[in-house]
Design a protein around this nucleic acid. Sequence first.
DNA 1: TTGTAAGCGTTATCAC
DNA 2: GTGATAACGCTTACAA
Lengths: 333, 333
Amino acid sequence: MVTIKDVAKHAGVSVATVSRVLNEIGYVHEDTRRMVEKAIQELDYTPNEVARSLYKRKSRLIGLLLPDITNPYFPQLARGVEDRMQESGFRLIFGNSDESEQKERDYIQTFVQNNAVGIISSTNFPGMESYRRLNIPVVFLDRISSDRPAVYADGREGGRIAAQQIIERGSRRVTVLQGPAHIRPAQDRFQGAVEVLQDTGVAYEVIRTASFALKEAEEKAKELFAAFPDTDGVIASNDMAAIAVLHEALRLGKKVPEEVQIIGFDDIPLIGLLSPPLSTIRQPAYDMGYKAAELMIRLIEGQTVELRNIQMPVEFVERGSTRKKPENEYVDR
Amino acid sequence: MVTIKDVAKHAGVSVATVSRVLNEIGYVHEDTRRMVEKAIQELDYTPNEVARSLYKRKSRLIGLLLPDITNPYFPQLARGVEDRMQESGFRLIFGNSDESEQKERDYIQTFVQNNAVGIISSTNFPGMESYRRLNIPVVFLDRISSDRPAVYADGREGGRIAAQQIIERGSRRVTVLQGPAHIRPAQDRFQGAVEVLQDTGVAYEVIRTASFALKEAEEKAKELFAAFPDTDGVIASNDMAAIAVLHEALRLGKKVPEEVQIIGFDDIPLIGLLSPPLSTIRQPAYDMGYKAAELMIRLIEGQTVELRNIQMPVEFVERGSTRKKPENEYVDR
DNA sequence: TTGTAAGCGTTATCAC
DNA sequence: GTGATAACGCTTACAA
């Protein structure tokens, strides 16, 4: 391993001088600079980030905590975060939390032990003590918390749109999948949907889910059609749940969208290729990750951040699991 | 930040003693140990990994480099790696290479700058100088190289199976998508398929692709049916390519699998839900990641590794994009 | 403009 | 059994 000392020796200067040219700080004679740069070149030297980090008590590392990268929604968030971070020379320590409080705690500990300068997290436990204690910036992603900045989609509006669309397209006995109770964006979606359902007086039922796991979604889908066999419209809490519902509906011989309409949430890759392709409320996942990273960088750099909560717009993506909108019928709101 | 000094002071001992109980090394009196442990508890102390890493010249960090986590195949690899690593207390610095040599180089540099103890990579450039220079273990994942250990699926066998199956099920004018030329597993698949095609004397054509990107796959799919409109069977280089081919076939009004059979490779999530669901050659992605991590850990711990190359089995997953096998017709090999 | 040296939080060597 | 202390590779006062 070649160190700053080697470079100093090779260039015939002190380590302080090498450090100065490395960090472009303080005075250093043009000729000296060139000598040092030549030495760096020749020795193929790269500074040891660990030593730097130790002295400065901060690294160029960001902790990224996601529930499960295997769920197609999260890679896009991750990618958005990574792309923005790498533009500014930050790197990610990455972990899956599996919606486990213990794993989250462990990862948060790792992050601080490694002098991470910030944490971006799609936590399931935003109120957790571990977060509260942190004295580095935290940005919640696809989550909401009163005590930390956050980037998320407009769930309430998404829920409203889903309900409006499914009603406009003719469903009259709607079932709403309610996502995990402790996750705000999920509840917002739910409430937005219920709000419209109540206002328009359309009959609806509710099925509660506790996690985002596919397995649970499959069980709930069965439960749904067992409990409400005559439902003619399902507003799912996310696309994975919608897929489970779609599957179960088809298995029961129901025609989608003729007998049951289904609307998902997220717009994960490939759902446009299912049969029927899934209509959904699109969240701009990549952009959300990107924005979260942007916010984090501002926080790290100590800039005053006007907007601590960034809400992203959602939109209805019409595909085959909903019926065509009747042309002459206008439902306003 | 509470340091080992604080703990020492609090417990009325020296930092050396604290370090001893921390690392369970050397002699320390039972009573002293208890005092120290109490102090650690009370101060909620966790050792600074950066300082440790600096002194020992090695961290608990592993570099993981994947082409693009947004491609549904890679999250599973990542998850397998992560799960195994976390069992042994290792953490991941993660990066997407986008099949870019420069990005790979940058990430490798980061890894070494942060004292990573190993690198697991699905590189597109296994022969790259940056890898050669490394003096920490490298494990290639889903890639093959003569100078580094690797974990990959049996591509040749996969290609053979794909060809056999598509022939047995009746295709007689097969088109084979040849994956990126410099990636061994992709070439193995191709060669395996061609081998069987030639042996059985079935007519076939080849379309070359350069990357794994979906966009290119879509172009090649168009090219495929333009060049060989009467092909009745496509062996794709991976599932994303197969999806593109499926889409294009359907767009052209071809019936799948009646007029064209399609076989993918990988078995990524959700392709079983497409219409028709995609038949494919399954790679055990999660297991591959897990095994790669396992191999890496052995390498790190300096254990002699009998098996430097781990080849995983593949299997045909029959779904709707291939026809049923004629019951009375036996094709052997 | 450059060099010396202290210090970042650990671990490990060597006395005691 | 335990404590001083050098060392890991870097940055930054401070001195020259």
